[in-house]
Design a protein around this nucleic acid. Structure first.
Lengths: 252, 252
DNA sequence: CGCAACGTTGAAATTCCTCAATTCACGTGG
DNA sequence: CCACGTGAATTGAGGAATTTCAACGTTGCG
């Protein structure tokens, strides 16, 4: 893991209406907010928080102050045990929301770490909650985002609970592909931002198993893999492996 | 599986202030609502929906109309695949909230099925959402409940991802014990409401494995098991097995 | 009583993990 | 520019844990 554990004093830029490809905007666009409401939400947030690979958006155990909406790049969320073991619980791309697991207890349960050069919008939760009361569409959208997180995890549990190594990896690749496609990237060719170990951790497998499965897929012409560069050659074949469970996404 | 798939016309009683041990009350009590607000919430809900073992609170795929707060008994939530496989994603007792996974897509993803004679309060989601805007404490509490669901699933994922069969079963029993204790039941002696198969499904194990692990625990005097009647004899021993991860609960 | 569902137990098969050796990519410093 | 070290990835072999298949006992219900 490249992550270093320093408190990270990151760069912030303050809100301005012209933030064209803002993650927060991407996040709230589906909410159907009008211009005024969008401005209100914008005024709340600190925009363009920049994090290099391995830097933390927040640490597990810290008091919940803000949620983060990913603007660009990608992050992983992971729970840490006292005994040092770690479990990746999610991977978020632009438009993704992190920190919701902290709302109940008031403390983050997860470390959230950038997987590459990434930017995020930081939304103070208290003020956000207050604002969302006066904007029904925002509240609605927020509830939906929480619900999405819940249902996503259900899918993941299905995976971890009852799928073979091959199925998990196939599922993972397809989910990634779908995610990237919905963000406007190629759905068939991409660079993995995760090491074999991280993938294994996410899927409940050992890194060697991940590697072996990828090799097998490679041999069967389902994918072409060169270290982290990945090309999906036969999505249908992968999908057949997973047993037609495409209705539940693996990656958010 | 005992569940039968008929549309279930269940009994309903309408709200009255004197519903003394109401699940909805249990749910909203921590929210710190005043008498008037409690009345408003009460007026919204249909109370004491009765379901016998195997009956459905709602079916996967149906449009989200209501959330349910469990009042007594227990229910399981499960996702179903097209290919027939099923995965239990949660078990809820009194005070538990179900249906949140439907908020995003507007459709329930889960079947919610009574594990025993149970009662629930049915809360129409649209009206609830509206009411919660005018009662900050309620909104807060609802967000917390959603967050709890999310963090609970993280714990479950940790379990499914990287724990041995023994650890999972130990974890499961301890979680159950803790849950029952917090509901005022004995924490050491209880009747499992789940078959071996259901437990296995929940934990990502085969039913035979569950049975074997329970036998082993029995031999080691960690528990005494007679079919579904279960007695925890040595909680410390179980806890040691799990590797001190008691901070994340397995059962809600 | 007899059937059906549940639970237990054993033995064989399989999957996945652990340990270990090797290669590859990449950055550093001589 | 090349040697070197480091971390990531691949591959193999052996072993452990879990699943699968199968037999059998128990319980409850029609």
């Amino acid at each position: 893991m490249a992550g270093m554990c320093l408190p990270t004093p990151l760069l912030f830029h303050h809100a301005h209406a012209g933030c064209p490809s803002c993650g927060l905007l991407a996040w709230c666009r589906p909410a159907g907010l009008n211009a005024l409401q969008t401005d209100q939400l914008f005024a709340l947030a600190e925009h363009r928080r920049v994090a290099k690979r391995g830097e933390f958006l927040h640490h597990a155990g810290a008091a919940l102050k803000s949620l983060h909406v990913i603007r660009s790049g990608s992050v992983k969320s992971c729970i840490k045990h006292e005994d040092g073991r770690e479990q990746i619980t999610g991977i978020s791309f632009s438009g993704g929301l992190t920190g919701t697991e902290a709302i109940d207890g008031g403390k983050y349960l997860c470390d959230v770490v950038a997987l590459e050069e990434s930017t995020a919008c930081r939304v103070p939760f208290g003020e956000f909650e207050r604002l969302s009361r006066s904007i029904p569409a925002l509240q609605r959208h927020f509830n939906a985002a929480m619900g999405r997180e819940i249902s996503r995890n259900y899918g993941l549990m299905l995976q971890l609970g009852s799928m073979s190594a091959e199925q998990r990896v196939a599922f993972f690749l397809l989910g990634l592909s779908e995610q990237l496609a919905s963000r406007g990237y190629s759905s068939t060719k991409f660079n993995l931002r995760l090491s074999r170990m991280e993938i294994g951790n996410y899927l409940g497998l050992q890194l060697e198993t991940v590697s072996r499965v990828l090799s097998r897929f490679s041999k069967d012409r389902l994918v072409a893999v060169n270290h982290r560069y990945t090309e999906i050659r036969n999505p249908g074949g992968l999908r057949k492996l997973t047993g037609e469970c495409q209705n539940i996404r693996a990656v958010h």
